[in-house]
């Protein structure tokens, strides 16, 4: 560098202007569009994952339990029947626990309807035995039902099957709807990114043409644009994906702080425990990678096609555009 002339243009070797202008309005608009679409896509991914997770937790919570209901009757010792039912249920394989709901607990359960200070023993209130089930090794519900029914005609076993089945089909439907919406959002994402990238490139037509005419190879020109649009795409997707993750984190923080309150419990029952699983991170990463790849590939194909069209003029003068 000793012989470098000490003149103004020496600074060019330090920092040459990029061949593709660093940032113009079109590029900024593209970044914004990409950020918004990525944000929406990541939110949808997160929502679908959450629905899926909640759906399976509803299922397992409800199917972990079954109840034996014993209706009172004249000259019928309900306490003995309860103990008997508990014993029968506990004797089955796959039943981990059978618990009688005591009188005071039943009173608490009924309090909203009957009010305090009520003497339940005077009322014909059905009593319950709650059976806990080993999910991995479920018992034969039919056999338990028959055995209890034979011993105590007033008793019925409710294994929650009807509920679980309804919940399963509802949860599945919700998940399918979620996946369908996700597919729509991803399609919109792809189309928006492709068209916005092509729009942003349109203003660079003159640059492509000049480069081509001063002897740059198609590969060189495409490389310049590809790199620029990769960064535009990546930046937009990172902003959008980052915002989505931040939103989930805030949501989770709020949910955890409110877990003890009534709304918190309601929300938790509906949506599961809200913990951000790896799934959301993987989904966001996937969206970001998809967007960056799309902008890069679209930029390359658009540039190559523009050059092709410039050369096409040479093949057929009647198709001149200027």
């Amino acid at each position: 560098m000793a012989d470098t002339p000490v003149n103004a243009e020496a600074e060019h070797s330090v920092k040459p202007t990029p061949i593709v202008p660093p940032s113009n309005i079109a590029g900024q608009a593209l970044s914004l569009v990409i950020a918004i679409m990525s944000f929406l896509a990541c939110l949808t991914v997160g929502a679908v994952l959450m629905i899926d997770k909640s759906a399976s937790s509803w299922q397992s919570q409800i199917s972990r339990e079954a109840t034996v209901q014993i209706r009172p009757a004249r000259d019928f010792d309900i306490e003995t029947a309860l103990v008997e039912a508990q014993a029968i249920a506990a004797s089955f394989d796959g039943v981990t626990d059978a618990r009688i709901i005591g009188l005071s607990q039943t009173a608490t359960l009924l309090e909203p309807w009957l009010g305090k200070d009520i003497n339940l023993s005077e009322l014909p209130v059905p009593r319950l035995v709650v059976i806990r089930i080993d999910e991995r090794n479920p018992p034969d519900f039919k056999a338990i039902g028959t055995a209890i029914n034979e011993a105590i005609p007033n008793a019925t076993l409710d294994d929650h099957r009807a509920w679980v089945d309804r919940l399963v089909s509802m949860a599945n439907t919700t998940t399918y709807v979620g996946v369908a919406i996700l597919l729509l959002v991803l399609t919109a994402l792809v189309l928006t990114v492709v068209f916005a990238t092509r729009g942003a490139l349109a203003s660079n037509h003159i640059i492509i043409e000049v480069l081509h005419f001063v002897g740059a190879r198609a590969n060189f020109i495409a490389g310049q644009f590809q790199r620029r649009f990769f960064w535009i795409g990546l930046r937009g997707a990172l902003i959008g994906g980052g915002a989505a993750i931040a939103m989930f984190l805030i949501f989770q923080f709020w949910a955890q702080r409110n877990l003890t309150t009534a709304e918190g419990v309601q929300v938790a029952v509906l949506f599961g425990d809200f913990s951000i699983g790896m799934g959301i991170f993987i989904g966001t990463f996937f969206v970001i990678a998809l967007v960056a790849a799309l902008t890069t590939i679209t930029a390359r194909l658009t540039v190559v096609r523009t050059i092709y069209e410039i050369d096409e003029q040479r093949a057929d003068p009647s198709r001149q555009s200027y």
């Binding site: 060019h12 000049v210 001063v214 190879r217």
Partner: peptide, 20 residues
């Protein structure tokens, strides 16, 4: 002319050499 508006005079002239 077809000069690139975002590049300086110097860079416009150097462009053919740069792309080579």
């Amino acid at each position: 002319f077809r000069l690139l508006d975002h590049m300086t005079t110097y860079e416009n002239v150097a462009l053919p050499l740069r792309v080579r």
